[in-house]
Simulated assay, not measured.
Amino acid sequence: MDSGTADTATVLDGLDRRLVCALQVDGRAEPGRIAEVLGVSARTVTRRLARLTGSGLVRVVLMPDARQAAIGAVLLRVRVLKGKVDTIAHALAARPEVPFVDVMLGGQEVGAVVLAGDGARDRLLHSQLPATGAVVETSAHAVLHLFADAGRWRAGGLTPAQEAALAPPPPSTPAPQPDGLDLRLLAALAVDARQSHAALAAAAGAPESTVRRRLHRLAAGGLLRTHATVDPRLLGMAVDANLWLGVPPGRLAAVGEALAGHPQVHGVLATSGPANLMAAVFCPDHGGLYRFTTETLGPLGVDRVETAIVARAVKRAGVVLPRRA
C-alpha cells in the first residue's frame, strides 16, 4: 500500500509501528485508551497519531462488512498491452464497486476485486474492458468463501493481551437499516474514520449527542469496522504477493482458517478456477516469501502455488493510493 513518500522503510520507529497496529485493531480508539494499553503518555500518542494521519502515512477508513459482499465477488486478472497498465488500473480504481486494484510485477497484469451485481459485472468483463483495445486476456474467479479480509489483518506488533484490550465489543444486535443520517455518517467515516464526534456532527448536520447515539447503534450492529491503510514497508514488509493455491478439497477449510490467522496474511479467499484458494501476503523480502512458501504453506499440505508479486498497489479497501516516490 503506497504512502507516496520516499525512503519509507525507515520512517516508523517501534512506537509508531505499535500505534499503527493499535489502529488495525480499532481505528476509532481514543488516544487515552491506546496510551493506557501501550503504557505511554496520552500526549505522546496524540502527537504521534496526528503526525501519522496528518502526513498521510496512515489513513483510517470505514470498511464494510465483506462477509456478505464477498460471496460471489470476482477476483479479476487482466493482462494488458505493454504501456497500458496505468490506464486500465486507474480506470478500474475509479469504479466504486472495485475496492482493490494492484499492478503486478512485470507491468502487464492488473489484479482487482469486483463487488458488483451480475449486470454490472458482465458489462465490465464482456463490454467495457474489451472495448478499450488494451486488454489482451481476462480471467475472472468467483469468491466462494471469505476466511479473512484486509480488515482482519494484524501486523503482529502487539501482544495478544494488548489486542484484546483494544478490540471493540463484538456486534450485539442485528445490523440496522441505515436511514438518511446514518448514511451521512457512514459516508463521512468512509473518508476519515477517525473524525471526532463534533466533526461528524458538523458534517452530518445533526446534534453531537444524536451522533454519539447513532454511532453506538451502528457499532452494535457491526457497521463500524475500520481499516488502517498503510504502506507495509513502514512495518518492515517490503514484498506484497498474491498466492494462488491448490489445496486438496478435504483440507481447504483447515488451510484457509490457518492462513487467516497468520500475521503476514492480509486476505484469504476460497475461489473458483484452477486454484481453489487465494492468499494475499506481506513478507519482509523475497527470502521471506520463500520461507513463507516452504515453512508455512508446505506443512499445510498445499499442492500448488502460483506466486504473483505486486509491484504497486493502486487501491486498497476503497482508498486510491498515491504513487510511490
Rank of each mutant, 00 (worst) to 15 (best):
P168S: 07
R67L: 02
Q108F: 09
A270G: 05
A161H: 12
K84N: 10
M278Q: 13
A260Y: 05
L115G: 01
E163T: 14
Q195A: 09
E295R: 14
G39C: 07
R213A: 15
Q195H: 00
W153Y: 14
A167P: 02
A188L: 05
V265N: 07
L181Y: 01
P176E: 11
D13Y: 07
L15N: 07
H141F: 12
P160T: 12
L38A: 13
D285F: 01
V37N: 12
A193H: 01
L289S: 10
V211A: 06
P31Y: 07
A142R: 10
A70M: 07
P322K: 04
R43V: 14
D26P: 03
E306W: 10
A325W: 04
H141I: 09
P168M: 07
T307R: 08
L144I: 00
P322A: 08
G221K: 03
E306A: 15
L300M: 10
A238E: 12
P130Y: 09
A258K: 02
N242F: 13
N276G: 08
L183H: 11
H90S: 11
V320R: 12
V98H: 02
A279L: 04
D122L: 13
L185T: 06
L146Y: 03
L200N: 01
R79K: 09
D102N: 13
T138N: 11
S127R: 15
L19Q: 03
V114R: 00
E295H: 12
V191D: 12
A134C: 14
R28N: 00
G250E: 14
G288A: 05
G222F: 06
P99K: 01
A308I: 05
D26W: 00
A22S: 15
L215I: 08
Q177C: 05
V247W: 03
H145D: 12
G107T: 09
A311L: 11
R323W: 09
V78K: 07
A175Q: 04
D26H: 07
A204P: 00
A70V: 03
R123P: 03
G288V: 03
T159L: 13
A155R: 09
D13V: 01
G205E: 05
H262L: 09
L144F: 00
S209T: 09
T296S: 00
G83H: 06
L183R: 15
R121E: 13
L129H: 05
R79A: 15
P160L: 07
L105N: 01
A91P: 04
D122E: 15
G221R: 04
A22T: 06
L234R: 02
L189K: 04
R213S: 14
A35T: 01
M63D: 13
L15W: 04
T229M: 10
P168I: 05
G256K: 04
V143S: 10
G222C: 11
L81W: 02
A112D: 05
T173Q: 15
H90F: 12
G157N: 09
E36K: 10
Q264V: 05
P174K: 05
G106T: 11
A241G: 10
S196W: 00
A254I: 00
G56V: 02
T5V: 15
A220V: 03
T53H: 01
V191L: 11
P169S: 15
E208G: 01
